Simulated scan of single mutants.
Amino acid sequence: MEMASEVVRLIAVRDVALSVDEVFEAVGDATAGGTALFVGTVRNHDGGAAVDRLGYSCHPTAEEEMRRVAEKVVAEYPVRALAAVHRVGDLDVGDLAVIVAVSCPHRAEAFAACRKLIDDLKHEVPIWKHQHFSDGTEEWVGAC
């Protein structure tokens, strides 16, 4: 069995535009029959309010925490390869905020592992979202 460090192929927090192609390529594996990829984008609304832009910031341990979450997913599912990247800094509506991907022997496992990965990243990794609304108000949102 592969070590988690070999299966977790890409973990990053970046202040530059994210690449779906890079993440997809990172999880390519000849033993995997299913690859699931999730892309989180900045939407133009939240809770009925119009959003103009977002700012993401993170704790210095964010990448370390992302790796911990990723290794937990690898331990729970038959993951062949996993990748996760999150953006920080100022983002506009439509920008990519997070991309995660998982490849597994079968599609059901890939879907389940990918969902677990994004859900746990959102709840456990210290990345915070600062929303700027069209009416001039703003709001900080906890772990993203």
Score class of each variant (00 low, 15 high):
2 E>A: 14
2 E>N: 12
3 M>R: 14
4 A>Y: 03
7 V>P: 00
11 I>Q: 03
14 R>T: 06
15 D>H: 12
17 A>I: 00
17 A>P: 12
19 S>V: 10
22 E>K: 12
24 F>I: 07
26 A>N: 00
28 G>D: 02
32 A>V: 01
32 A>L: 01
35 T>Y: 06
43 R>L: 06
43 R>G: 11
51 V>A: 08
52 D>V: 08
52 D>Q: 13
52 D>G: 07
63 E>F: 01
66 M>V: 03
68 R>V: 09
69 V>D: 08
69 V>P: 09
71 E>I: 04
74 V>Y: 03
76 E>V: 03
76 E>Q: 13
79 V>T: 05
80 R>M: 04
81 A>T: 07
82 L>E: 02
84 A>Q: 01
85 V>H: 01
86 H>Q: 10
88 V>A: 01
88 V>T: 11
90 D>A: 12
92 D>P: 00
93 V>Y: 09
93 V>L: 12
95 D>K: 09
97 A>Q: 01
99 I>Q: 07
104 C>K: 00
109 E>N: 04
109 E>T: 00
116 K>L: 10
119 D>A: 06
119 D>G: 15
120 D>R: 11
121 L>N: 04
123 H>G: 15
124 E>M: 06
129 K>T: 06
130 H>C: 05
130 H>E: 13
130 H>P: 00
132 H>K: 03
134 S>D: 07
144 C>H: 15
